[in-house]
Simulated assay, not measured.
Amino acid sequence: MHKRVRTAVFPVAGLGTRFLPATKAMPKEMLTVVDRPLIQYAVDEAREAGIEHLVFVTGRNKGVIEDHFDRQFELEKTLEARGKNDALRELQKDLPSAGHTSFTRQQEPLGLGHAVWCARDLVGDRPFALLLPDMLFKGEKGVLKQMMEAYEETGGNIIAVEEVPHETVGSYGVIARGEGPDNGFEVTGMVEKPKPEEAPSNLIISGRYILQPEIFNLLAEQTTGAGGEIQITDAMQTLMSQQKFHGVKYEGQSFDCGSKIGFLTANVVYALDRDDIRDGFLAELHELGVGREIT
């Protein structure tokens, strides 16, 4: 019987420099895809998968994220008084239950591995999920839920992966695939940003993990790696010599919203999936002379 995964960690301390000046005073995680912040999509995915405790690793100027997941009594009263009941229900639906969110600070930008280590006391000695909010996934079933289903079978550590053109693997963390089905195969190795000719596969790590708590001890002793930062990949490589890792080649579409192209693409795809704005959006695209092949 595997220990249940109840906690998810969201590293949200990054500076978002690729979206300046928009992110000068607003966290990049609060940038909206249509009308929902990126961090809300990640939280929705975690809650769908059965996560009960949401841990946010924040930094300076990130207080608005905490406010987003708190009640806004004045706003709620105003919506109620104006009869905007649909909007009020939407706000209440997204609100985590009292006591189900925790916030801790990463006081220096020392890398993703360091951000995860900062959550150690809030996670404790149980397995946890790690979700990078920059990555947005669209599918019938959330990526973390697919991973949870694999975890129930395999236990250990789980990494979500996707297939990319082989010539582009040098921009990603890449895994070596062992035996097993797409929804739970053994991971036999991983390497960060390999040359295409040296890559063990074209399966890249996609920003979703289920990790065992022993990762924290390794991160505490981890020296800096690429970019002078403490890398989660380095700690996972060490942990792989001690514990099993499995991969899930998830079903769905991914958007790297840490890039402008990925972010804009996500907005278009999500807008076209909305019954309330699809037709109007298509009409505007057609007026501009684009999107005529979209129906």
Rank of each mutant, 00 (worst) to 15 (best):
D273Q: 12
V269F: 11
V248W: 01
A199Y: 05
L272M: 10
P213S: 06
I215C: 04
A266L: 00
G252M: 07
E251F: 08
R274Q: 09
I204D: 02
K195A: 09
Y270N: 12
T233H: 15
D256A: 03
N202R: 07
A226V: 13
V268F: 07
I204N: 00
G262D: 01
C257H: 08
Y209T: 10
G227D: 00
H246W: 06
A199Q: 03
Q231I: 08
T224L: 08
A271W: 00
D234M: 09
E251Y: 10
N202T: 05
R278N: 04
L211C: 12
I215P: 04
T238V: 14
R274S: 09
S206F: 00
I261N: 15
G252Q: 04
Y209M: 09
Q253P: 02
I232V: 15
Y209K: 04
I215E: 07
L211I: 15
G225S: 11
G227L: 06
I210E: 13
Q253G: 06
C257V: 10
K249Y: 10
I230A: 07
C257N: 11
F216N: 08
L218Q: 07
A266T: 08
V268H: 09
L218P: 02
N217D: 14
E214K: 15
I205D: 13
R208P: 03
P196M: 07
I230V: 15
Y270K: 15
V269I: 14
P196C: 09
L239Q: 00
K260D: 09
N217S: 14
N202Q: 08
V269L: 11
K260R: 13
V268I: 15
Q231D: 13
H246S: 07
I215T: 02
L203E: 02
G227Y: 01
T238H: 12
P200A: 06
Q243E: 12
Y209C: 06
G227F: 01
Q253I: 10
R278E: 09
D279E: 14
A199V: 03
R278I: 00
I205Q: 15
N267E: 10
G258V: 02
